[in-house]
Simulated scan of single mutants.
Amino acid sequence: MSIPNTELYSQIKKKLTKFKPKIISLPEFKQSAVLMLLIPVKNSFHLVFTTRSRHIHSHQGQMSFPGGRFDSSYDDDLQETALRETGEEIGVNSNHIEIIGQLNDLPITSGYIISPFVGLYQGEIPVTYSLNPVEVADLVEIPIDFFLQQPLFQDKIDFEFTYQGFKAMSIFVDYINPKNKKTYHIWGATAHITAEFFKICFDHHLTKPEYSRPPLDLIIEYLSNRSKH
């Protein structure tokens, strides 16, 4: 498959190759991985987002990237987790995906560390998806131009996490699918990972300077106290 706009692809891959992600591995957290899947479309790329099923244990109905928990029975590393989960959730075979980079590990207050990988789809276009209804309720491809045209993600204080006087600023953006007019609400960790991708690859800042995630030591303290109750 020929890659449209090879200059854009080269820019993304060059930026990600140079980027050195922050890796976090701590016993207080479970390891997980997600895949930001780039789909070549005309002269650009789309990013694949999913809506989590109501049948799963956590974050039901929220927007996410394909991914899940590391399973040593199947995965040698977290990259394999991201690829395996992508195949299981949306039916895209790992043989058709080139991993081109990794972003910073992201600890979240549910007790997971998310390792985000970026991959390029190299199979036949248009892509054929096969959604696992147990895990995925919906899927949408969003053009990267949509995010590049956004001046800033919106934010809301005291929306995602409040602990020991710290109030997390949760960022979000709404995408209206022009095909069916459905609104997709992207927020929290998924919005954070998206914003980081565009900052690294395009120097496009989608968050305000004062935006911050909960610090690692505070999350660890929160998890420790939660486990005692």
Results as ranks from 00 to 15, higher is better:
Ile220Gly: 01
Lys167Pro: 01
Tyr222Pro: 02
Ile97Met: 04
Val140Ile: 15
Phe29Gln: 12
Met169Glu: 12
Ile176Glu: 00
Pro4Cys: 01
Ser212Ile: 03
Leu83Met: 10
Gln62Glu: 13
Ala168Ser: 12
His96Tyr: 11
Leu8Gly: 04
Ile56Tyr: 00
Arg52Thr: 02
Gln149His: 15
Lys179Pro: 02
Pro4Glu: 03
His229Asn: 13
Asp217Ala: 12
Ala33Asn: 14
Ser224Leu: 01
Ile171Leu: 15
Lys18Pro: 02
Leu216Ser: 07
Lys18His: 02
His204Glu: 02
Leu120Ala: 08
Ile200Phe: 14
Asn95Trp: 04
Glu124Asn: 11
Ser2Thr: 14
Leu38Met: 11
Lys228Pro: 03
Ile144Asp: 02
Thr6Cys: 09
Lys22Arg: 12
Leu106Cys: 09
Phe49Val: 03
Glu88Asn: 05
Val41Tyr: 05
Ile99Gly: 09
Asp145Tyr: 13
Ile97Trp: 05
Leu206Val: 04
Gly91Met: 07
Ile114Glu: 10
Ala195Lys: 12
Asp138Asn: 01
Glu28Arg: 10
Leu131Ile: 14
Asp105Ser: 10
Ile176Gln: 05
Glu221Cys: 05
Asn225Phe: 01
Phe146Thr: 14
Lys182Asp: 05
Phe45Pro: 01
Phe19Gly: 00
Ile193Pro: 08
Ser170Pro: 03
Thr109Cys: 06
Lys179Gly: 06
Pro40Tyr: 06
Ser224Val: 06
Thr6Ala: 07
Ala33Phe: 02
Val48Gly: 07
His59Leu: 08
His55Gly: 03
Ser170Leu: 08
Ile3Ala: 04
His55Pro: 11
Pro214Cys: 13
Val118Lys: 10
Lys42Ile: 11
Lys22Asn: 11
Ile100Lys: 09
Asp145Thr: 15
Lys156Ser: 14
Val127Tyr: 03
Ile193Lys: 14
Val140His: 04
Leu37His: 07
Phe172Val: 02
Ile186Thr: 03
Gly165Arg: 08
Asp145Asn: 14
Leu47Pro: 03
Lys181Ile: 05
Ile186Arg: 09
Ser32Lys: 10
Ser227Ala: 09
Pro133Tyr: 05
Met1Tyr: 09
Ala82Cys: 12
Ile108Arg: 10
Ser115Thr: 15
Gly165Asn: 09
Gln62Thr: 11
Leu131Met: 10
Phe166Gln: 13
Phe45Ala: 03
Met63Gln: 15
Pro143Ser: 06
Leu223Met: 09
Asp158Val: 10
Ser212Lys: 15
Ser53Asp: 05
Lys13Ile: 15
His96Lys: 11
Ser73Ala: 11
Leu152Trp: 13
Glu88Asp: 04
Ala195Trp: 12
Glu135Phe: 00
Ile144Trp: 07
Glu141Tyr: 04
Phe19Ile: 04
Leu35Thr: 10
Pro116Thr: 12
Asn225Val: 07
Ile219Gly: 04
Phe65Gly: 03
Lys13Val: 13
Leu47Cys: 06
Ile100Ala: 05
Gln62Asn: 12
Asp105Met: 08
Tyr129Gln: 12
Glu7Asp: 05
Ser25Gly: 09
